Computed example of a mutant assay.
Amino acid sequence: MNYAYLNLDNIFLALHELRSLIHGTEKEYYYGVALYDGSEKVAEKSGTIKKSGVVLAMSTDVKDIVDQLRGHCFSVDIDVPMREYKNYAKGVYGEVVSSIKTSKKCDKLDLIVTEGMIIAGKRASEKDTWSLISHSKRPYTQSGSLNPELGRVMVNLSESSQQILDPFVGTGTIMIEGKWLGLNCIGSDIDPSMVYKTLFNLKHFNYDCEILQADATFPPMRETESVVTDPPYGRSFSPKGLSDLYEEFFYSVVELVRGKVVFTTDFKFDWRDALKSSGFKDIQIHTIYEHKSLSRAIYVVTK
């Protein structure tokens, strides 16, 4: 069995990303950590999973943990997602460290103390923060652009194995994350300046995606595995104009997508009725607080 230590700022989104990456569901959940079967290296591809690995021992009694680990060599990290267990965790850490050999050259051992449970696991991967920081420094960006972490999460939520389409490509955040994850990426935008900026940003990272100038309500292809996108929802659109744009977009993509559609919007808008009218049945929504004037809603929908 494997463990995934989750971002506590949005646990439900992190769980959804984990389920998308393992194409299944967790076997057990304790606050901040999910136990699952599948790849032990899910964290390295994720935006909300801090680290993951293989469970070595698990118990409410520290003596059971010590018996399993005694004599082995580890470099130990301890995580306590629930504040009320801080003092208890200090004792757990002391007993475990006194029973093993410790060295920075040895495997990393994660001790996670939560809900009275002690989970000891050998770390296999961590979130790739370096690539996210690098992608945040792309040459072109603009106010309201997705951050790379959220773009990566959205691509993962699509569960794509081959290809994504972004018909509102903007400055290319989703294309960059899709390509980094190894997917074929096709993007379009009605604004030629956005096409130029996306191509420039992709070239900066030596990434290759197909980027076209096209209206999002008339996609430049007949079929795609999934759609991952960040449509406009700013002040430049009247409420009526925004509603028309989204409804036309929903009707256009429902015909061409084989899998999921993942998109963001201002949480103040509710697109569930419009999605159902255009043919989507399964609708999941996550709300992400950005700052005092914007909270985003992430929609994950299927036909």
Score class of each variant (00 low, 15 high):
D191V: 11
Q68I: 02
T287S: 14
I11G: 00
T141Y: 15
V169T: 03
K276Y: 15
T302Q: 08
F205I: 13
G144H: 00
K90Q: 08
S46H: 00
I78F: 01
C209G: 11
S136W: 01
G170N: 07
D244K: 11
K51L: 12
P232I: 03
D128V: 08
V228K: 02
E159R: 14
D61E: 15
I164T: 05
Y93V: 06
D9P: 00
E44Y: 10
K86L: 14
D64T: 09
Y246Q: 09
E40D: 08
S277H: 13
P139M: 03
K86N: 15
S125W: 06
C73H: 00
S160M: 09
Q284G: 04
D61S: 04
K108A: 05
P232K: 03
S46R: 02
V254M: 10
E115R: 08
F12S: 05
G172W: 02
T129P: 01
V257H: 02
S20R: 07
S226P: 03
A4C: 12
K41C: 07
V254T: 12
I285K: 05
I190V: 10
M1T: 06
F12V: 03
G94E: 09
V257L: 09
M82D: 11
D79Y: 08
I78K: 10
K260Q: 04
M221A: 12
E210F: 07
S161N: 09
A34W: 08
L8Q: 06
V96T: 13
N10K: 08
I176Y: 07
P231I: 01
T302E: 14
K303Y: 00
E225L: 08
T302N: 13
K137H: 15
V254L: 01
I190M: 04
S243G: 01
P232G: 08
L202D: 01
Y88N: 00
F205K: 15
S188H: 06
Y246G: 00
A214V: 13
Y140I: 08
N147G: 11
Y251L: 13
I133G: 10
T287N: 15
I288L: 11
D9Y: 07
Y29Q: 05
K41Y: 10
S277N: 15
E126G: 03
S236N: 09
H23C: 11
T25F: 13
D266V: 14
K260R: 15
N147Q: 14
S39T: 12
P231Y: 01
P231R: 02
I174L: 09
V262R: 00
S52N: 05
T171R: 03
V96D: 02
S131M: 15
G47R: 03
E149H: 03
E17R: 08
K41N: 07
T60C: 09
H72T: 04
V261T: 01
G24T: 00
S188P: 06
S277M: 13
E26S: 04
N206Q: 15
H23T: 12
I288S: 11
Y85V: 12
F168Q: 04
K108P: 00
R235A: 06
Y31K: 05
I285D: 00
K108L: 06
L15F: 00
K50V: 05
M221Q: 14
V55Q: 07
